[in-house]
């Protein structure tokens, strides 16, 4: 699995850090919305379920998950 994020769309709603705190963090910006930071672009098998939920529930569709077979 690979993870792609579109930072332009991120407003720091922070759903991802609730779903997959091992993979995402949200960092404050000087004069912009807080933005997601991917801590691990190739999450291990046991984290992948949480990552899919983070992508699914992100209100701004910032996170794209690319599965290995895609």
């Amino acid at each position: 699995m690979k993870i792609r994020v579109d930072l332009d769309l991120c407003q720091g709603h922070s759903v991802c850090i609730e779903e997959a705190p091992e993979v995402f963090s949200v960092e404050d910006q000087a004069d912009d919305y807080p933005k997601v930071k991917v801590l691990n672009f190739h999450p291990s098998a046991e984290l992948q379920g949480q990552v899919r939920l983070a992508a699914r529930y992100c209100p701004n569709k910032v996170i794209t998950v690319i599965e290995d077979n895609e």
């Binding site: 407003q11 720091g12 709603h13 922070s14 759903v15 609730e18 910006q29 004069d31 912009d32 919305y33 807080p34």
Partner: peptide, 18 residues
């Protein structure tokens, strides 16, 4: 513009997931 950005950021902060 810079203050507007900060205000919008503070506004969205109140609506974040937590």
């Amino acid at each position: 513009p810079d203050k507007m950005k900060s205000q919008l950021k503070i506004q969205v902060d109140a609506l974040r997931y937590q």
